[in-house]
Amino acid sequence: MSRKSIRENLLKAGDQLVWNTGYAGTGVRDIVEAAGARPGSFTNHFTSKEDFVIEVLDRYFAYVSGLVEEALGDRSVRSVDRLRRYIDLITGKLADADYSRGCMIGNLSLEASFDNERLRAHLSKLFATWRGPFEACIAEGLEKGEIAPLGSAAELADFLLSAWQGAMLRMKVDRSPAPLATFRTIVFSTVFDGGKHA
């Protein structure tokens, strides 16, 4: 097996482990075993578990960024409808996982905020990058009067992503789509109401 395929197998196996057991619960030995790799192979490709998990996160973020572009990229669609499209698209992905997985970035943020400064800083950077396309979409909506001017585009993008992360957290606890539906109903009848506030 080539070095490239061993590395890929480690990342794929680790991705599943990080989803299932989080950062603290995922050990290097577990990753190697799940990948069917030889003991010691991990250190041939990664300098630490931290580096490994950051790469897993970056791969996940690339996937999420594709979903963001799919939902928000068509500027011929009203900004609020693009935001709604994103929420609906992600809700479908969450349903496919029986409302048990949530968001890897949000999941790891709960762990990394206290005892791993490098991972915490990387997650913070991902959230800031993630905000960008939402901020641009919301700025269009503010300019066209489709979104209530309750803050700047950056503040409203932060609010949207933070509140959505909270809804997903509650969804995981309850194993129910109800928190997602409540979030969608309230946020699109208040701040992102399509201009009905005007």
Results as ranks from 00 to 15, higher is better:
147 I>V: 15
131 R>W: 06
157 A>S: 12
142 L>V: 08
158 D>P: 01
76 S>W: 00
132 G>L: 11
158 D>M: 10
78 R>H: 09
151 G>L: 03
176 S>Q: 06
132 G>C: 00
50 E>R: 14
72 L>Y: 03
120 R>G: 02
103 C>G: 05
146 E>P: 07
86 Y>E: 08
175 R>L: 07
84 R>F: 02
169 L>E: 10
133 P>M: 11
132 G>I: 07
144 K>L: 15
89 L>M: 10
40 G>I: 00
90 I>Q: 01
97 A>Q: 08
77 V>M: 01
65 S>D: 11
70 E>F: 12
165 Q>E: 15
95 A>R: 15
81 D>M: 06
61 F>D: 01
183 F>R: 02
130 W>Y: 14
144 K>N: 15
105 I>Q: 07
93 K>M: 00
118 R>N: 08
180 L>E: 03
72 L>N: 05
132 G>K: 10
71 A>M: 06
82 R>L: 00
40 G>N: 03
44 N>Y: 13
54 I>S: 03
115 D>T: 09
89 L>W: 04
61 F>M: 12
131 R>C: 03
168 M>Y: 09
64 V>L: 10
180 L>I: 12
74 D>R: 11
88 D>P: 00
49 K>A: 03
176 S>M: 04
169 L>I: 13
101 R>E: 13
52 F>H: 11
173 V>G: 14
89 L>F: 02
166 G>K: 11
155 E>V: 07
143 E>F: 14
117 E>P: 10
116 N>V: 03
57 L>A: 04
107 N>D: 12
147 I>K: 03
172 K>F: 07
119 L>G: 07
160 L>Y: 15
90 I>G: 01
174 D>T: 11
182 T>W: 09
161 L>W: 06
45 H>M: 14
92 G>E: 06
73 G>D: 09
122 H>D: 04
40 G>P: 01
104 M>Q: 06
42 F>E: 04
157 A>I: 05
60 Y>V: 00
117 E>A: 15
146 E>R: 08
93 K>P: 00
153 A>F: 08
154 A>P: 02
73 G>I: 10
65 S>I: 03
160 L>Q: 12
87 I>C: 09
114 F>T: 08
45 H>Y: 15
128 A>V: 06
134 F>H: 00
41 S>T: 13
126 L>V: 02
160 L>W: 13
122 H>E: 04
84 R>N: 07
75 R>A: 13
88 D>S: 07
103 C>V: 09
114 F>G: 04
107 N>M: 14
178 A>M: 10
46 F>K: 05
111 E>H: 13
56 V>H: 05
177 P>M: 10
147 I>Y: 04
143 E>S: 15
119 L>H: 05
96 D>S: 11
156 L>P: 02
97 A>D: 09
89 L>I: 01
98 D>V: 07
70 E>T: 10
38 R>W: 02
118 R>I: 08
109 S>K: 13
175 R>V: 01
82 R>K: 03
153 A>C: 11
134 F>Y: 01
52 F>Q: 10
88 D>Q: 08
163 A>K: 06
81 D>E: 12
55 E>C: 01
161 L>I: 15
59 R>Y: 02
105 I>E: 06
91 T>H: 08
99 Y>G: 04
59 R>L: 08
123 L>N: 04
121 A>T: 11
56 V>W: 04
130 W>F: 15
103 C>F: 08
133 P>T: 09
